[in-house]
Amino acid sequence: MANPLAQFEITTLVPIQLGGVDASFTNSGLFMVVAVTAITLFLTLGMRAHRLVPGRWQSMAELSYEFIASMVRDNVGTEGRPYFPFIFSLFMFILFANLIGLVPYSFTFTSHIIVTFAMAITVFLGVTVIGIIRHGLRFFTLFLPSGVPMVMAPLLIPIEIVSYLSRPVSLSIRLFANMMAGHTMLKVFAGFVVPLGILGGWAPLAVDVALTGFEFLVAVLQAYVFTILTCLYLNDAINLH
């Protein structure tokens, strides 16, 4: 049976050395380029006709735009408008990464924790910096809820700080673990199809078909969860209570 984890292997396509650092162009990088190209084509070609009554393609492009626009409006408010381009890019990047990763023989770069952690830590640092710029030192009252007796402060402040620091970790682990687990499971069941022969092979095949459908759901849902949590964190930094 083929190794179900072989799909996550990084292979170097173009070796590049930048000052002793290995900055090679890998299959992971290739699929990032593919995702960005696909998003650009999807949005620009979709909106090329810009009809008043949109066709199917233009409708999909407008729907994805309006979905994120209303998400930012509902969760952050009007002050979140300057950050819409970033959040929209983040959503489309993760969504396309997850969906392109479901194509056979392709590579899912969101199944690598370093990729998801890089995105999560960018969001985390960005949100923290925005909060400090907007509220100054008052931002740190985040760690001590109002109305808490001062006796509790030495216990509560470390808990709140750990809780705050766990945000990028939970954000990155969630996306990475879901993508990796799903893809491994698909491969494990697919590996049983041929060895079980013409009689028994149908059972794992049926499971794999069902799992593929489920993976589409997970792909979209994880992009949504990552984006909405980014919105909620941004809301905390902007509308400090």
Partner: peptide, 17 residues
Amino acid sequence: IGLAPGFPQRPEKGTEP
């Protein structure tokens, strides 16, 4: 009640889908 540390509530944001 909001996910952030130290958040009693999110006033006008009570309209989650």
